[in-house]
Design a protein around this nucleic acid. Structure first.
Length: 418
RNA sequence: CGGGGUGUAGCGCAGCUUGGUAGCGCGCCGCGUUCGGGACGCGGAGGUCGUGGGUUCAAAUCCCGCCACCCCGACCA
C-alpha cells in the first residue's frame, strides 16, 4: 500500500487518556482509534495486524480439526434460562437489549448456549462425534472498568472453540491437543518463551482450568512460575494444599505479573444436558456429550504484542503479525529515484510481499521516524545514493545501522528467489 | 460500585487562585528557502472553553446538577 493513499496519520504527541504504553503507541501510530472507554476501532494497519493474528490462530485451530463458523452476537434469552445463566445474579457483566416487541436478547459474551443449541440439528449418533467448532468474533462484556487499551476492553475480538466429545477420555485427549496448539500459537507470535500454561480455578466443572499467561508488568494477574517445569499457578489457587497436589515446591516458584491470553476449561456435560443435546451410543442408549471451551483473546494479544515488542522509537512487530513486511522509503522525487522505487514496489507486491510504500512528499527524517514508529520489520530506502550506486539501503527495525545491499541480496533477505 | 483526578482549536497544554468575552507548541492552508533522522521564515484558517442551570453589569474563571475520560481499589461467568 502506498502511504499517500492511507488515510491515517501518525502523531508526535502521546494521547493523554491512555497510560498503557501499547495503547499509546497503537494510537500514535494510527493502528487503532478510541471510540469510547474500552471500545476501539481498528484502522487499516491495525486491522491488518488483527487479521494476521487471527489467521495464525485459525491455522492452528484447523490443524486440530476445528470447524470455523460465525454466529450472531444477538442471543435468545430462553437458552440461557435453560442453563441458568440469564440471571444477572449469575452473570453480571452482560450487555442485553430488546426487540421492538419487548423480547429480551443477550449480546454475546460467550457462546456455549447458542453453539450447543445449534447441534440439535446435527448431532444424534456417536458417529457424529467428536466435533470441534470455533468462531473468531467480537465479544461484549460490560466491565465495570475498562483499562490498558486493548488489554481489557468492553468489546474485543476472541476466538472461542467448543469441543463435543463422547466420553471423558476422548475429551481429555483433545484438551491436551488444544493446549499444545495454543503453545504453538504463542510461539509463532514470538512470545512462546514468556508464556506459561497456568493452573487456575476451574469453576464448577473441574478443579482446574488452564490459563495461558504471558509475563508482563502490565498484567492484571499474579502467577507463581516454576521455570524448570515451564508451568505456573494462578494466585487464585495458590495454596499449600494445591501445591502439594500438583507436586510443586513453594520455594522454587517465582511470583510474576502476567496477562492472560488464553483460557481453556472442561465443561463436562452441564450445557449439553441442560439444552437436551444427547447422542445415541453403539448400544442404542442415550448419552451425554462432554464439552470443553477454549478461549483466546485476539485483540488482547495485539495489545500484548504491542506492549511486548516496542522500544523508545515505537512498535517493533514480529514478522508474523506485522501489517507489512517492508517499509519502502523513497527519498525525494527525482525521476530515477521514483522509477527505482516504483519498480521495487511492483516487484515485491507481485511476489506477495506486503509493502508500505512511503511515496509521500515529506522529508527523510519524517519517513524514518514513521518507519520506526509503525514497527515494520524491514526498511528499504531508495534515494539518489542508491540509484547512483545501483544498490538498496536495507535495515531491520531492530538493527542500529543500515547496510547497502545489492538487489539480489535484498530479494534473498526478503525471501524471494530472484 | 467506593476513593481520587481531568474536560479549553485535530493533538498536547497554559489561562481559573485575584470574573472584564481566550493563548502557546505541534498539526493544518498559502508563498518562499530547504531536503538522509520529525527543517526554517513570512502570512493565514480554526474554539457555543464537556453540558444544563445559578450568581453577577459581566463567567473558561465562582456555585449546583449531569455527562464523559483517566488512575487506585473492588469486580472480571
Amino acid at each position: 500500500m502506498r502511504l499517500s493513499q492511507l488515510f491515517t496519520k501518525t502523531s508526535k504527541t502521546v494521547p493523554a487518556d491512555e497510560t498503557a504504553r501499547s495503547a499509546q503507541l497503537l494510537i500514535q501510530a494510527g493502528f487503532i482509534h478510541k471510540e469510547m472507554a474500552g471500545v476501539y476501532a481498528y484502522l487499516p494497519l491495525g486491522k491488518q495486524v488483527l487479521d494476521n493474528i487471527a489467521q495464525i490462530v485459525r491455522e492452528e485451530m484447523n490443524g486440530i480439526g476445528g470447524n470455523e463458523v460465525s454466529m450472531s452476537i444477538l442471543q435468545p434469552k430462553d437458552i440461557w434460562e435453560k442453563t441458568g445463566r440469564w440471571d444477572n445474579e449469575k452473570v453480571d457483566n452482560w450487555f442485553k437489549t430488546k426487540l421492538l416487541n419487548g423480547t429480551e436478547l443477550g449480546i454475546s459474551l460467550t457462546n456455549e448456549e447458542p453453539i450447543t443449541d445449534m447441534l440439535h440439528e446435527f448431532i444424534s449418533s456417536y458417529k457424529d462425534l467428536p466435533i470441534y467448532i470455533y468462531q473468531i468474533g467480537n465479544k461484549f462484556r460490560n466491565e465495570l472498568r475498562a483499562k490498558s487499551g486493548l488489554l481489557r476492553g468492553r468489546e474485543f475480538l476472541m476466538k472461542d472453540l467448543y469441543s463435543f466429545s463422547r466420553n471423558q477420555a476422548e475429551h481429555d485427549e483433545f484438551y491436551e491437543k488444544a493446549a499444545e496448539a495454543y503453545m504453538r500459537i504463542y510461539s509463532r507470535l514470538g512470545i512462546g518463551d514468556s508464556t506459561y500454561r497456568t493452573y487456575a480455578s476451574g469453576g464448577i466443572f473441574s478443579q482446574f482450568s488452564d490459563e495461558f499467561q504471558v509475563l508482563s508488568d502490565v498484567g492484571e494477574d499474579t502467577i507463581y512460575v516454576d521455570e524448570n517445569r515451564r508451568i505456573a499457578v494462578n494466585k487464585e489457587v495458590f495454596t499449600d494444599e494445591i501445591l502439594t497436589q500438583l507436586g510443586l515446591n513453594r520455594d522454587e516458584l517465582v511470583e510474576q505479573r502476567a496477562v492472560e491470553v488464553g483460557n481453556i476449561f472442561p465443561l463436562g456435560s452441564k450445557y449439553s444436558d441442560a439444552l437436551g443435546v444427547y447422542f445415541t451410543d453403539e448400544q442404542g442408549g442415550q448419552q451425554s456429550i462432554i464439552m470443553g471451551c477454549y478461549g483466546l483473546g485476539i485483540s488482547r494479544l495485539m495489545g500484548l504484542l504491542a506492549e511486548h515488542f516496542a522500544d523508545d522509537k515505537g512498535l517493533v512487530w514480529p514478522e508474523a503479525v506485522a501489517p507489512a513486511k517492508v517499509y519502502l522509503a523513497r527519498l525525494g522525487d527525482n525521476p530515477d529515484v521514483v522509477k527505482q522505487a516504483d519498480e521495487l514496489y511492483n516487484l515485491l507486491t507481485a511476489a506477495d510481499i506486503q509493502v508500505l510504500y512511503d511515496d509521500r512528499d515529506v522529508r527523510p527524517g519524517e519517513k524514518f521516524a514513521d518507519a520506526d514508529l509503525l514497527g515494520i520489520p524491514h526498511r528499504v530506502v531508495v534515494s539518489d545514493k542508491t540509484v547512483s550506486s545501483g544498490t538498496y539501503e536495507w535495515k531491520r527495525r531492530k538493527a542500529q545501522a543500515a547496510e547497502q545491499v545489492s538487489a539480489e541480496q535484498l530479494l534473498k533477505t526478503l525471501g524471494i528467489d530472484a
